[in-house]
Nucleic acid binder design. Structure first.
Lengths: 110, 110
DNA sequence: GTTATTAATCGTAATATTGCAATATAACAA
DNA sequence: TTGTTATATTGCAATATTACGATTAATAAC
């Protein structure tokens, strides 16, 4: 049906899925990497970096903002975007804990 | 257009996006967690764990297999599924490196 | 052989996503 | 006020995803 049956899963599972989904597009991966690479807040020039139209970038930024991966503050005519460390850390912590469990168990059946 | 302009991005960016997209659904998060929790290969009983129909689960398993997050080997009438540690590790490494860069720079502008 | 069991595939409906042109909005400058 | 710049929103077409009933394929048990 194109709709996820979110009610069948835990809040944590839905939370991780939402974050992962936001990272699940190369344009958004590129935006995240660019924001980190620039080392400071980026005021607008993301559109010049990626070969996508301005409305498309704006839409991707909105999605990243919705899940809390980036923050945006208005600075005059432009907007200042930067990564929200805490949200990236959530993903890092999640996958780190998965990997840790996998190392501990060493299943070698398949 | 509902199609990602993958040609505009690096292979690594597309790779991470594909892995993240696969994790970007709560049912697939639940499947991954279940496979890890069970500590051994799971031969079939994933359908009983999640309240989704068998074809739906089968489809989710296929997607996880396509990106290499799980492996499946046929065992008689059933199939034996387990996590592919290396692929999970790719995600862990990626997010760990992002977090590391963020800790180093300490941007406090927004 | 027949029958049961397990999982994949097909077909299809409902919904979501991606991308962009056109337009709107907001802040500033002259 | 008018124009300019930067970003957001709207509307829409193309495509993708999610979910499941029905069916199929493959092995196992008899």
């Amino acid at each position: 049906m194109g709709i996820s049956k979110t009610e069948n899963f835990t809040a944590k599972q839905n939370g991780i899925a939402n974050l992962a989904k936001a990272v699940g597009h190369p344009a958004r991966v590129a935006i995240i990497e660019y924001l980190i690479k620039r080392k400071t807040c980026v005021c607008g020039d993301i559109v010049n970096e990626l070969s996508l139209a301005q409305p498309t970038i704006s839409q991707h930024l909105k999605e990243l903002k919705n899940v809390g991966l980036i923050k945006g503050t208005i600075e005059g005519t432009s907007v200042c975007y930067c990564i929200d460390d805490k949200t990236v850390q959530k993903l890092t912590d999640y996958f780190t804990s998965l990997s840790a469990k996998l190392i501990n168990q060493k299943t070698t059946c398949c």
